[in-house]
């Protein structure tokens, strides 16, 4: 009789050690699975904790002024658009008699009715809607410019022999070495004398210049990682340098482009000091406007929260739209090194 060693069954043939991270594993050790779910739980708890302020802003934005100041704080309440209406419109206080009279009118629009609830009447749209629009224009354009110009120069720095390349790159970075606030006064004076004060173009240019150094460096890192062979293959396959740039480099660099876009946008969107100094009316953006909501008679927390909420939404949308590019694709590694 010969003793044959039994063939390992499928059950036994899985990985012997716990496989913690792998892309091509169909059977994961139970211990690794538990560790995975523990980590996921912790991550969820942590992100919930960091989301509490956002959650609170959202709640406050939908409260009436009385609910906002209620003690103990109300978690459950009847949602109201009062905050948004007073944010987006310019209102005046009504006397008792005027309130009586207005409540008799049958043709009041829903916004007027909301205003009436807090004893006010609407004069017209507020500045905030316009300022939010300014923010979109200025932050959007400057982000687009920073990324496009940054991409072109990063590509040049990464691929071509540029004289004094290192010095130039250092020079570009050095524009970020001074705290920006230090130069607000000189820039204010310059802008005023050349007529860029309170213009969209002025802020767009300023934000683009600030973001460019950052975007050149960040994108250069990403482009450096794309093997030159891809472009060389396309060149011998009959493409011009520019076609190669669009068909090979940009798809390969999209993680970097997405990350740069988000960072540039967040900077330009949130910038406060320059916007406050360099704009007054025409080109004023949202960030310096939010504190001025505070001013008009009592602190209207629900209005401020509504302002903050509207302010958050565009960045959240962009980040959300780009999220799958922000995660490093599995495509890296097709050139073996």
């Amino acid at each position: 009789m010969t003793a044959t060693t039994p063939r390992p069954t499928f059950e036994q043939s899985g990985p012997r050690l716990p496989v913690v991270e792998s892309i091509r594993v169909d059977r994961v050790h139970p211990r690794a699975r538990i560790a995975g779910s523990v980590r996921a739980t912790l991550a969820i708890i942590l992100s919930l904790i960091s989301l509490i302020p956002v959650f609170w802003i959202v709640l406050t934005a939908f409260k009436t002024p009385t609910d906002v100041t209620a003690i103990p704080p109300k978690l459950i309440f009847e949602p109201s658009l009062t905050g948004f209406v007073s944010l987006l419109s310019d209102m005046r206080l009504l006397s008792q008699a005027e309130q009586e009279e207005r409540s008799q009118q049958p043709d009041l629009s829903w916004v007027d009715q909301i205003a009436l609830q807090i004893g006010r009447a609407i004069n017209g749209p507020s500045q905030y809607a316009r300022q939010l629009g300014n923010s979109v224009i200025i932050a959007g354009t400057s982000t687009l410019l920073s990324v496009v110009l940054g991409l072109l120069s990063a590509y040049a720095f990464s691929r071509f022999n540029i004289p004094a390349k290192g010095d130039l790159l250092f020079f570009i970075l050095s524009t970020r070495m001074l705290p920006p606030v230090v130069v607000t006064i000189p820039i204010f004076l310059m802008y005023r004398s050349i007529g860029l004060h309170d213009t969209h173009f002025g802020l767009i240019m300023l934000y683009t210049v600030f973001n460019l150094s950052f975007s050149v460096w960040l994108l250069k890192g990403f482009i450096d990682e794309i093997p030159r062979e891809y472009e060389e293959a396309a060149l011998v396959d009959g493409y011009t340098r520019l076609q190669t740039f669009f068909r090979i480099v940009i798809p390969q660099a999209r993680t970097g482009i997405a990350a740069t876009t988000v960072f540039c946008l967040i900077f330009a969107w949130n910038e406060y000091a320059f916007a406050l100094m360099l704009t007054t009316q025409n080109a004023r953006t949202a960030p310096p406007s939010i504190p001025s909501i505070l001013g008009s008679g009592g602190i209207e927390w629900n209005t401020i929260a509504a302002g903050a909420l509207l302010f958050l939404i565009p960045v959240v949308i962009v980040t959300f739209a780009l999220r799958q590019h922000l995660l490093r694709g599995v495509t890296f590694g097709a050139v073996r090194k």
Partner: peptide, 20 residues
């Protein structure tokens, strides 16, 4: 002449297949 005008094909050591 530019590489694209030479009508020559190049096979690279590390294949250089476009991953996307």
């Amino acid at each position: 002449l530019h590489p694209s005008e030479r009508d020559i094909a190049f096979v690279f050591q590390f294949f250089a297949l476009y991953p996307h």
